[in-house]
Design a protein around this nucleic acid. Sequence first.
DNA 1: TCGCTACATTCACATGCGTTAATCCTGAGT
DNA 2: ACTCAGGATTAACGCATGTGAATGTAGCGA
Lengths: 260, 260
Amino acid sequence: MNVATDGTAQGRWIIFSRGPEHSLTLHLSAFVRLASADREILTQALQRRVRILEPRQDIIREGERPRFVNVILEGWAQRYKQLADGRRQILSFFIAGDLCDANIFILKQMDHSLSTVTRVKLAEISQSEFQEIMERSPRIAQALWWNELVTVAIQREWTTNIGQRTAYERIAHLFCEMFVRLRTTGRTDDDECEFPLTQSEIAEATGLTQVHVNRTIQEMRRDQLIELRNKRLKVFDLDRLMSVALFNPNYLHLDHEGLA
Amino acid sequence: MNVATDGTAQGRWIIFSRGPEHSLTLHLSAFVRLASADREILTQALQRRVRILEPRQDIIREGERPRFVNVILEGWAQRYKQLADGRRQILSFFIAGDLCDANIFILKQMDHSLSTVTRVKLAEISQSEFQEIMERSPRIAQALWWNELVTVAIQREWTTNIGQRTAYERIAHLFCEMFVRLRTTGRTDDDECEFPLTQSEIAEATGLTQVHVNRTIQEMRRDQLIELRNKRLKVFDLDRLMSVALFNPNYLHLDHEGLA
DNA sequence: TCGCTACATTCACATGCGTTAATCCTGAGT
DNA sequence: ACTCAGGATTAACGCATGTGAATGTAGCGA
């Protein structure tokens, strides 16, 4: 696949492309316009250690010591957290181009877990590599701050989502967020996008039960809001979906200088 | 008040002290041991622009352009977010020593609001001052990253709290978090601490209604878990409170090198 | 084709929490 | 002491969402 040099397809996400030679080229064309030297630095970093993981597999678990910054190159991944008695909350989703935790080695141990949703291709960046990148390019260092600020903003929105919205609104909001993020990185096809989550996973992400998610999605289908099957989501009218979800994309902070 | 040079009282929070001459001295003795030069830099930055705000007053509102990093010197403040129809979610609380949003100027506009809970004394740090600090002291810059990582971790815990815990557990968890954070900064008195929130505010922070918060707190009182009146919280048995809340303090990341 | 297995769907019933709206405190100011 | 206002408390009632468990369905390997 190729990528994202026009306004539409740029975003917070670090997006990559395969050139004709199938080598990865990284664009942290997020937030700042990076010089080609910066791009080169990132491209290098992403090639050093690449792994492929099967679906529903842990990347790192709560309590473990973080050793790498993970960058998702293909597929969906997620953060989650489990209470002592097993209840599980999904905290966020990662899609291609997302950087999991800049500077995570500063923390002694993970307070949550990372796992794949689909089959995932990711790049691991070691602490020393990471520090070198930050030192060599202040632009990238600033882009990483920006990335982190957006990450917190998304987490705040999720808190609000679960705390204030009804089941119907919550699920609609999740659809909006993922659709917009995928579109920003050029991964939508008109009014459709991939959506590899099971209803149980939607439930764990929204603080609902799987049964109620099922009921609610059927209601959304009846309302002609969406279609969801075979791991694909179709949004008939995004404005309407955003409206019923009380979705305000401001928290994604897509209004940065990287955009046209 | 004086502060926090021993292990117990150090924490993630940037704590300050009044010397005998009533001048502020800042300790970002969080996470890293700072050199006295670093301390001096921070002390300076915190003296330049100090404001006092009355209770329940906005500091900055969603949509506005951020101009300062705010550091809380005294009192409690909060983040909140409001949906288009008025529903409000409180997203986190700040206590003395907390730094609101490092590098916030990177974002074009606020995606949430900041307001006081009690009367608050805060220091504003401008963009240029802030950048200068980061450049002059890499130790501080790293401490700021650490601070940001803990901020996201707390937000994740709040998401989990609202998504998975029952009303009783949620409120207990909030009590635990604030008690532990206050204790870490030396602001508890044995088994008691200040707790200036109204039941309505507890409700907005936990995604419950004020009526149900009231019911639940009475139940906690009957269970001899806590006492709460006159804006003071008494915790009879912190271990038991943590246990019913399924509270695991790992997300506060207090196990850093700054600690003895 | 059979029979897994993982999901999605349905059903009957229970309940935790929300809603609305009085009424009751308590502390601060006069 | 008296008053007032902002909380806290109580009550009656409703509903959104949870629980537990059965049934349906589609893909996939043997």
